[in-house]
Write a protein that binds this DNA or RNA. Structure first.
Lengths: 335, 335
DNA sequence: TTGTAGGCGTTATCAG
DNA sequence: CTGATAACGCCTACAA
């Protein structure tokens, strides 16, 4: 394994010169002749500068970390895709870390394994303890996710308001005549369930339904919850799922049970994942700007990082949700 | 930002002692009293050893890189999930890198950004140039993917044989009476198409169909190809898709066009992604052991890496595919 | 049981 | 234009 000294020796110059040539920093300060000799030597030795040594002296790793659970959910997979592309574009590497506990992310920062952490949170909280762990002027934490209060937060973030999305879904259902809607929740009394209850006007009843965890995956859970909803809550004419995966599971269960969607029961999803237009029937859902939040905030930070010197402050950003009406919703059956 | 010297000072010991305590290497060689003082000092200073410095001296990064395109495909997302879990289990970090060109991966190794590269390839080739770039005794490249020839390859890999899977699908269709099947390919004359042609007996005709790239996503492509197949190739009673995503798109198109599946046309997918059981109708498909290949080979390597000293050689591994019959296939209509 | 010193591979600063 | 030299933060012989 060759290091910078080997290259220097092979080219008959000093390590400093090799460094200068390879970093292109002081290109104008190196004669074309030596430049070429160095490049040749590096090439033929298959030399690549050690990331560790470079990080040690530079204090940066050119790495961004994406912190998230649920990678299997297409919605998050999409965000990952976007992050990957942008990292690529700016010459960064992408580290994928579970967002289980704060301390893990803090170590990441303290060990300086990443310059930027994009943290997918639900919801984005007002004070992010991880952000408090930034250690260098060049480290940044961006929180991305639904927000539960008003901007500005004490920590910058890229966010949207699920209240808005849930409200749009509820009002859509109310508008076409539904009066009794089951909200398919993962766990009881969560945020979105609250929003749904808030959004329901006097003429609409929201019935929260959830199910003990333990089901294998979200699709199975969606199916199970949908069944329970229709069984336990007579009079329900529409299901509002907390995410598309649940909704897909629900569609499947209804189909199996011979319940026609949307003729007998309407179904609404959440997030507008890539499968939504291809489900059967195509899913009415709410588009959530996760991917765009990641893309915009990440790009902004990386640009600042590459231009500016000193501390980089991400700008907060709030985008809108959007109801996407497809074929899984219609007027309730006229009894 | 505190370093090991700060901790040493705070604890009234030397940096060496701090290192010993924190690495637990020579635990028995440090008195309990100093041990506690060091731990306290480290704690209260919020000290974490610099990954860069550590990597520089140790020659390892505790990082595994997963190289792949197609993160958005649920099939690969699953592999990612598995890799994530195992990395976690062994205390490794996970780097996600695009598998575009070999040189990129080679730099990764040469810059020592990762100790292990798990490379998702299609197909796994006999000589992997990336593997040739390993630089330290502790670096490993594992290729995971379908294999096009017989084991052993010159490079170790974890693989399966798509011939087997495609054959099972073709024979399933033949067995229930289909005589003319369209193979929905991404591009013309690819590997799986070849296998399908090979697997077709004398009484079965395989018609390859593909479409110019440019469609937005695989679902849309699947839909478009399915339409083209049925339009251009009269007499086709079944569609064999090169992956589940195509198959899902196909199901959607057929449904839209009022063609009943499986009554009028059968559809077979490939990979058995998590949506397959939940499509409408549930998709007959071929399970492909990608996730298990990743899990097994990665675990084997990480175990070796943590036990053994010196070069680590991954063991090659070939697993089987399995036909999963669901509701999207049936006898062709009796004309 | 603990401390000292040298080196890992780079880059930046300062002379020449 | 180029070359010494000093960090960066840590680990590990070796010495005490």
């Amino acid at each position: 394994m060759s290091n910078i000294r080997d290259v220097a020796e092979a080219a008959g110059v000093s390590p400093a010169t090799v460094s200068r040539v390879l970093n292109g920093k002081a290109t104008s300060l190196v004669s074309e002749a030596t430049r070429e000799r160095v490049l040749d030597a590096a090439q033929s030795l298959g030399y690549h500068p050690s990331a560790a040594a470079r990080a040690l002296v530079a204090g940066r790793t050119d790495t961004i970390a994406l912190a998230t659970t649920n990678i299997h959910d297409p919605h998050y997979a999409r965000a990952l895709d976007v992050a990957q592309a942008i990292a690529e574009e700016f010459g960064y590497h992408l580290l994928l870390v579970p967002d289980a506990d704060d301390t893990r992310l803090q170590s990441l920062l303290r060990e300086r394994r990443a310059d930027v952490i994009v943290r997918l949170r639900y919801p984005v909280d007002s004070a992010d303890e991880v952000a408090a762990a930034v250690v260098s002027e060049e480290q940044v934490v961006i929180a991305v996710g639904p927000i539960d209060r008003q901007l500005p937060l004490s920590t910058p973030c890229a966010c949207w308001d699920d209240r808005e999305g849930i409200r749009a879904a509820v009002e859509h259902l109310a508008g076409i005549g539904h009066r009794r809607v089951a909200f398919l929740a993962g766990r009881p009394a969560q945020r979105k369930e609250r929003y749904a209850l808030e959004a329901a006007g006097a003429d609409m009843t929201i019935v929260p339904v959830c199910i003990e965890p333990g089901s294998p995956d979200d699709l199975a859970r969606g199916a199970a919850i949908a069944r329970r909803a229709l069984q336990r809550e007579p009079g329900v004419t529409a299901l509002l799922a907390q995410n598309d995966t649940f909704a897909l599971g629900a569609l499947h269960a209804l189909h199996e049970d011979g319940i026609a969607v949307p003729e007998q029961v309407s179904v609404v999803g959440y997030n507008d994942t890539f499968i939504a237009p291809y489900s059967c029937p195509p899913l009415t859902t709410v588009r959530t700007p996760l991917a765009e939040c990641v893309s915009r905030s990440l790009r902004q930070v990386l640009e600042a990082l590459s231009t500016q010197h000193g501390a980089v402050h991400p700008q907060s950003l709030q985008l809108h949700t959007e109801l996407v009406v497809r074929a899984s919703t219609a007027c309730p059956p006229t009894t």
